[in-house]
């Protein structure tokens, strides 16, 4: 079988292309350029075809549009049937999925149906150059954290055929949009076996959050155990507002019920890479570091001078964040006005 090209499952929700789809297209572009292959987006949904050009503008060469009323909302079996048919018809070399609640539900189901391996939550993807006799050239090298972020493992496919990986949102970087890029939009008709549609979606409820996803924030003011309570988190929020950022937190504060899970940075939360990560009262457990150490600039404030967070911080302040943050907010408000 001749497997070719780098495919991306371009996730959309309610017709909105998800940021992770564009990030994956960006990465797929790099991989395809090394291989001399094309980037192909699999775009499944209903009444979405008008957005296919957006995927091209961010780096896709071809967009395979699977448009069907069955695909209006994500349900495991419907999507598995559609994407399975695309993969078996096209024989991709590589397929990438976002490690979201959709991608992490769909990709393993496909992996089992295709009898192929799948590597979860990759943080790095590369193509082997053949320099190591233990690994043939042109294989996808998928690096991911294991043991709660304590260990990194590079995984390769053990079977011939398609190589599949999920990648966490916020890890890869999308390319700059180029509206002049051209590509092919290819309609694909999937046939459905509705006798397998056992799960019925009753309703989708959005939690009242009204906040920017922390993976998209340029500045994160993040609080941990040392911040301690809701009142002190208000101080972080005030600072975040002045610098145009968002508030995030460590797992401890989520477990304590002070912050929502969608604000959590780390191995079991989200991976972020903002321009500035200001860690307040966060000691820096390895699970937390795994989610933020790629940030461009890390500033940490912690009372304990031996806190591991200082090992990844560009600037570390040994002190009380609850005291320093309000002063910093006041000072920055003046600086920014100038």
């Amino acid at each position: 079988m001749n497997n070719k090209n780098v495919y991306v499952f371009a996730e959309q929700r309610e017709g909105v292309i998800q940021p992770v789809a564009l990030e994956l297209i960006g990465k797929a572009r790099d991989l395809a350029d090394v291989l001399g292959d094309k980037v192909v987006a699999i775009f499944a949904g209903h009444n979405i075809a008008d957005q296919a050009n957006e995927l091209i503008a961010y780096g896709a060469d071809d967009v395979i549009v699977v448009d069907a009323p069955e695909l209006k909302d994500y349900v495991t079996e419907q999507y598995t049937q559609a994407v399975y048919q695309v993969i078996t018809a096209m024989n991709p070399d590589i397929v990438l999925f976002g490690a979201t609640t959709i991608g992490r539900d769909l990709a393993p189901r496909l992996s089992a149906r295709l009898e192929k391996g799948l590597t979860a939550d990759c943080t790095k993807l590369e193509i082997s150059d053949g320099s190591d006799p233990k690994l043939e050239a042109r294989k996808l090298m998928m690096t991911r954290p294991a043991f709660g972020g304590n260990l990194m493992a590079t995984i390769v496919a053990a079977k011939d055929g398609v190589q599949m990986a999920t990648v966490r949102p916020g890890v890869m970087q999308k390319k700059d949009k180029d509206a002049t890029r051209t590509g092919n939009i290819i309609p694909f008709t999937a046939t459905f076996d509705s006798s397998k549609f056992a799960v019925k979606l009753l309703e989708t409820v959005k939690a009242e959050k009204g906040l920017i996803d922390i993976t998209e924030a340029k500045v994160l003011v993040s609080g941990g155990r040392g911040v301690g309570n809701k009142e002190n988190f208000e101080k972080l929020a005030a600072l975040a507002e002045v610098v145009g950022g968002e508030v995030s937190s460590s797992r401890a504060m989520v477990d304590a019920g002070i912050m929502d899970h969608d604000r959590q940075v780390g191995q079991t939360g989200k991976t972020v890479r903002p321009n500035l990560y200001l860690a307040c009262g966060i000691s820096g457990a390895i699970q937390h570091l795994a989610g933020m150490e790629e940030s461009d600039l890390i500033i940490a404030i912690n009372k304990d001078k031996f806190a591991p967070i200082f090992q990844v911080a560009d600037l570390g302040i040994v002190g009380d964040a609850n005291k320093i943050v309000p002063m910093l907010t006041e000072r920055l408000a003046k600086e920014i006005k100038k």
Partner: peptide, 22 residues
């Protein structure tokens, strides 16, 4: 197995920046 571990390693510790007690 559909995958195999090609190599595993611990992450190199990022060079620490400056830490101030002020």
């Amino acid at each position: 197995s559909g995958t195999r571990v090609y190599k595993s390693f611990t992450k190199g510790v990022k060079a620490a920046g400056e830490v101030h007690e002020v």
